[in-house]
Design a binder for these strands. Structure first.
Length: 484
DNA sequence: CTTAGGG
DNA sequence: CCCTAAG
């Protein structure tokens, strides 16, 4: 195999894949790997210029080659490769999740959790030392390195990009949005990464999960759901662009195919997903997606759809734009990887904050201020529970008064077009609940537990009153109304 | 796809 | 909110 690789230079990418797909023997593969780099430095350099790039393994320069060939190869790479695993860029959070599930980490899990914790905290508090760390790593090239932590930084410094670029990539904004993930989307590495993965697996077998996780690795950013969500938007675009720019690699699809192949060997789900998405990019309806993969596993698909929902809904750019009254700001959070990391359970808490209620002063009866939304740990199959703001309820009432009950689609289009969430079904459900609430209010008024109602009913009675009136005007199709 | 309804 | 059945 090695000879093939060396002799045939025209399609080295594919042969590279060969190397990836079938590492028969650890020693042989490693040796081949090394020899390959020693004997074909030009190609390596080509790969360096290649849009894809390697963060963890750097064999572009002679220095690095020597590094690789040196005695520390076996010691250094595993950690870095492990780091690679955490930064696997092939997909949004789901990918990471699945991937993490498939990879066994020794200490990595804990480390990851810590990082993710920090990242999460960062989202709330707005301060994260990763900024500093990333700044150091990104802007300081040729930083003296010693120890695994510095190895990583060294790797990062070796990325051939301008300082501004690197800074842009590594610097975490105060919002904690920028992270390695984005970097990955910016600089995807497919073939190289595969190689790394396989080498990683080899090392895994070798060292039997005893290798330590690189301490200074800012891998937390990856697990930061916000990152995932924020980047997932551009992810697809970048993906496409990647495939497009990848013309230099000659066969994109071939590459992709072998990629998925090698991945399937490792029982990874993401490739399947990407195959689906790529094979039918116009699967507009989630229903279609369901039908496609229903036979295989029903759990998986809702998962995907969930993430896509997240992607849509947590774009965040337009949440309640026209709401001058109460602006709900939700930290865009996605599900977090947790299943394998029970050591440190990070309850994902997204806070929905309403700005100092102007509406309260206006109507004097609005009392929603903050709500905690705890995302399920099951991967978040359920949509975020976004609290209905009073203004939303008002809009809903306006819609009902204008179109009547039942034309939720129209109401959504006319009154909730700006809010990506709030599907017509949501409107319907909300109206149903409002009716119920109004009924309950009427009854509770006579009763004694009116006080208790206030606890769980943020809706002002004026609203409920209007709901009641509307209910009389536009009777609800069914029994709910008769109850009134 | 939209709506109604149950969970 | 989710899911499903019915138009």
């Amino acid at each position: 195999m090695l000879k093939q690789v060396m002799e045939d230079e025209s399609a080295e990418a594919i042969q590279f894949e060969c190397l990836l797909v079938e590492p028969q023997d650890d020693h042989v593969s490693v040796d081949a790997f090394l020899c390959f780099h020693r004997n074909s430095s030009e190609k390596n350099m080509e790969m360096e210029n290649f849009p894809c790039r390697s963060d963890g393994l750097k064999f572009g320069t002679d220095q690095e080659k020597e590094h690789l060939l040196g005695q520390e190869v076996l010691d250094l790479n595993p950690s870095k490769i492990e780091a690679e695993n955490f930064q696997e860029p092939t997909g949004p959070s789901s990918t990471c999740e699945d991937y993490l599930l498939d990879v066994e980490f020794g200490d990595g899990g804990i480390k990851l959790d810590n990082d993710s914790t920090v990242a999460l905290q960062n989202l709330v508090s707005g301060s994260y030392n990763q900024v500093d760390r990333a700044g150091d790593n990104g802007t300081t090239e040729n930083s003296d390195s010693s120890g695994t932590a510095d190895q990583v930084s060294n790797c990062q410094g070796d990325l051939d990009m301008t300082d501004s670029e690197s800074h842009n990539i590594f610097s975490c904004t105060a919002d904690g949005e920028m992270s390695l993930e984005q970097r990955w989307f910016k600089y995807p590495t497919f073939s190289i990464q595969n190689l790394e993965e396989d080498v990683s697996s080899m090392f895994s077998e070798r060292n039997n999960k005893t290798m330590s996780f690189t301490p200074g690795l800012p891998s937390g950013g990856m697990l930061c759901p916000s990152t995932v969500e924020h980047t997932s938007a551009g992810a697809e675009a970048n993906e496409e662009s990647f495939l497009g720019d990848d013309a230099s690699l000659s066969k994109n699809h071939t590459q992709a195919g072998s990629f998925s192949t090698s991945s399937e060997k490792r029982l990874r789900k993401p490739p399947q997903r990407f195959i689906d998405e790529l094979s039918e990019p116009k699967s507009t309806s989630s229903r279609k997606r369901k039908e496609v993969a229903a036979p295989t596993s029903k759990i998986k698909l809702p998962h995907v759809s969930y993430h896509q929902q997240c992607d849509v809904k947590s774009r965040g750019d337009r949440w309640f734009p026209e709401e001058s009254t109460g602006i709900a700001i939700q930290v865009p959070f996605g599900p977090i990887v947790q299943k394998e990391s029970r050591t440190t359970h990070v309850p994902v808490v997204a806070k929905v904050l309403l700005q100092p209620n102007i509406e309260a002063s206006m109507s004097g009866s609005d009392d929603d201020d903050a709500a905690e939304v705890i995302l399920g740990e099951d991967g978040g199959r359920r949509k975020h529970h976004i609290l209905w703001t009073v203004s939303e309820v008002r809009k809903l009432m306006d819609g009902v008064s204008q179109y009547g009950v039942g034309r939720w689609s129209r109401i959504k289009k006319d009154f909730f077009s700006s809010s990506a969430h709030r599907t017509p079904v949501d409107l319907k459900d909300k109206w149903r609940n409002l009716l119920k609430a109004s009924c309950a209010q009427g009854e509770s008024k006579r009763g004694d537990d009116r006080k208790r109602n206030l606890a769980w009913r943020p809706l002002p009675k004026s609203i409920l009153q209007q709901v009641s009136e509307l209910a009389t005007l536009y009777p609800y199709p069914r029994d709910l109304r008769s109850k009134r």
